[in-house]
Design a protein around this nucleic acid. Structure first.
Lengths: 186, 186
DNA sequence: ACACTATCCGGAGACAGTCTCCGTTAATAG
DNA sequence: CTATTAACGGAGACTGTCTCCGGATAGTGT
């Protein structure tokens, strides 16, 4: 067990600042935001940034994790809905909105999606749990095929989101087709 | 009209070499292949590489265009098949194989998919034509909904390919769902 | 309030990759 | 064979990533 000392006040503050600046920079400039620039915007030196986040990837992961976590939390709130099919669809739509708003983050994360870092595994797990719940309800209501798995849904929606990145107007249309494909063959 | 002088023999040869080296490097190392390294592998100086391809993007586009072109040619051959539904499915499967083999190229291209460079527009057009033909036949055979457009198919398959990049075993499964979603609601 | 020290800050700079400039080489025309 | 000029290739400017360490400061004990 490593002794978990709490961060010093200034350290915590700086860490927070960097993450905010990074979130904005990645959202706006996508993957080509420079780290030194993020440090400058955050009002800290490059050294400080790199101490908190050893490399580009770590910083990106931290930002991404925050966002995913928020997304999953909103998913839980939806679980209470009466119509399970609509709840699932609504959650998927939320993901679209997220990607639209944080376009750059998505792209940047995409590049390192293969890396099985603990953070990434965490994110995937969070997502799986969130969608799993909504999916199960929709299946029990007979709106979705029994053999569909949480990962299937995640991958499909992820795929549609990615491929409609530059043509958002067709996103709903495609999502519609995909959802139709998941319904039980009557 | 710019006078189109034919390339000098050595220039043509070097250009070819660079493209080969680039294709291999991108396939293997993905987006992080360095251009100077590609030049070295191709047996030319960096200056030569940059004269033929002013920047990273141009080189990538050239490689990509070649591959897409080959893919479309193979699509035409499929158009002769008897079963149009199967021909379409087969072509989509070919795309999977391509991406699997040239993983890095795909990733790298993804990052600049927004750029509406002439080359990219060309590639999209080629693809649209290729899939349009197969799609129309499948629709006439009643295997696919009438309202589905070529772009829908391209985006969907592109999405599935992207999102199963790291879990190829589920690609067929997902493609199956997607195709089901495109079939006429009976 | 004061001093002490573990912790943290920040910027100079090492290193790597992208791309340019220009003197040299060699393909092609006459 | 010579002249012309397209093309070569490497030295190096520039930019972004990341490291190192002297100086500053929050937190702690007195």
């Amino acid at each position: 067990m490593t002794t978990e000392r709490p961060l010093r006040a200034d350290a915590r503050r700086n860490r927070e600042r960097v993450m905010l600046a990074a979130r904005d920079a990645f959202s706006a400039n996508g993957e080509k935001a420079t780290l030194d620039d993020i440090a400058r915007r955050a009002g800290v030196g490059p050294g400080t940034l790199y101490r908190h986040f050893p490399d580009r990837e770590t910083l990106l992961e931290a930002v991404y994790r925050d966002e995913i976590s928020a997304l999953c939390a909103r998913g839980e709130a939806l679980a209470a809905r009466e119509d399970p099919s609509e709840a699932l669809a609504e959650w998927l739509r939320m993901q679209f909105d997220y990607i639209k708003a944080r376009r750059g983050v998505g792209i940047a994360v995409k590049q390192m999606l293969g890396t099985d870092s603990p953070t990434m595994i965490d994110c995937k797990t969070m997502m799986r749990v969130a969608v799993g719940d909504l999916l199960r309800r929709a299946q029990e209501a007979g709106a979705i095929r029994k053999e569909v798995e949480p990962d299937d849904v995640l991958r499909l929606v992820h795929g549609v989101v990615m491929s409609t990145e530059h043509s958002p107007e067709s996103a709903d249309r495609l999502l519609g087709f995909v959802l139709d494909g998941l319904r039980p063959p009557r």
